[in-house]
């Protein structure tokens, strides 16, 4: 590089490309690779699901798959109706959502609007640690603690089964509360303080500030928190395998029935000695594709909702 005397005009040549900067290239290459790997993995998963699924539907009609009310591929009389698994999944997800949304958002409002700074500093990390408890622990918590309690307290004689969807849904709801609460709290804390002051100056109570200004202002983040919680519930496997059982021979009309979900069926079937390329083996992929479609739809919905509710503060 040319020596530049202080005060002297900079020579025109100094803006020309002189030295190469190889480090830039290396870093850019690494970043591209990181992006490509994750995209390639996604494509690989879709492809590896797709081919066995197509093969499966070569032998089983889609109509039977979608409308059949029994899922017994591993029994002697084989039936391929996915509805029992679907209904089981929906029950558990619904129950988990019903529990986790009010609790999670309530906790978030408390932490963001009511708790003193010291209390918040203490509680938030605890909440986040809770999110790290392994799901197998929640499964046994549901089976050995929640379910006996539920059966004891059950008001009618029609008691819940030893393994049932309700208790799995409750445990799963408890499991996703910290996720929902923590993310929703982040969104609420990001609402500018000036909006709270404006609301207080208009004679709002604390509750009005929280429900009419902070929650609407943080709606996009709150929706994202809920969707993330719901998709965790949808894909959760361990709790349902342990606490809801693996029954698949009929649609579970009531949540106190024991039944498999899509995920727990896959986990259960994959443990067995299914010969590769048998129809039984292909069922795993057909169910996997169905599950994938659900999570994919949920994510697409969440992206739309988040965009719709996004508020841009200058």
């Amino acid at each position: 590089m040319a020596v530049i005397t202080p005060g002297a005009p900079v020579p025109a040549a100094s803006v020309r490309r002189g030295r190469r900067r190889p480090g830039e290239r290396v870093i850019e290459g690494f970043l591209v690779l990181a992006a490509v790997v994750s995209i390639a993995t996604t494509i690989g998963i879709v492809v590896s699901l797709l081919f066995p699924t197509v093969e499966f539907f070569g032998e089983v009609s889609i109509i039977e798959f979608v409308t059949g009310t029994q899922w017994t591929p591993l029994f002697s009389i084989k039936q391929y109706g996915v509805l029992p698994l679907l209904v089981g999944t929906l029950w558990v997800t619904l129950i988990a959502t019903v529990i986790a949304v009010p609790l999670g958002i309530g906790a978030a409002i408390y932490l963001s609007e009511y708790a003193r700074p010291g209390t918040r500093k203490l509680l938030k990390p605890i909440l986040e640690v809770l999110a790290g408890i392994p799901t197998v622990v929640y499964g046994f918590f549901a089976l050995t603690f929640l379910n006996p309690l539920l059966i004891d307290l059950w008001p009618s004689d029609d008691k819940p089964e030893f393994q049932n969807l309700l208790v799995a849904g409750i445990a799963m709801g408890i499991m996703i509360v910290p996720t929902v609460a923590s993310l929703a709290e982040d969104a609420m804390s990001a609402v500018p303080q000036s909006l709270r002051e404006g609301a207080y100056a208009l004679a709002s109570t604390k509750m009005q500030v929280a429900t009419r200004v902070v929650v609407p202002g943080a709606l996009s983040g709150i929706v994202a928190a809920i969707v993330l919680g719901v998709s965790r519930a949808l894909g959760e496997t361990m709790i349902v395998t342990i606490a809801a059982g693996l029954k698949t021979d009929g649609i579970p009309w009531s949540p106190i029935d024991g039944a498999a979900t899509m995920t727990s069926f896959i986990a259960g079937a994959a443990q067995g000695d299914l010969p590769v390329d048998s129809l039984d083996y292909l069922t795993i992929f057909a169910v996997g594709t169905t599950l994938f479609l659900f999570t994919f739809a949920l994510n697409a919905l969440s992206i739309r909702l988040v965009r719709k509710f996004r508020e841009v503060y200058e």
């Binding site: 909006l195 002051e197 609301a199 609407p216 202002g217 508020e311």
Partner: peptide, 9 residues
């Protein structure tokens, strides 16, 4: 009324 305009979103 505050220093920075703070209309609600």
């Amino acid at each position: 009324v505050f220093q920075k305009p703070n209309p609600f979103p």
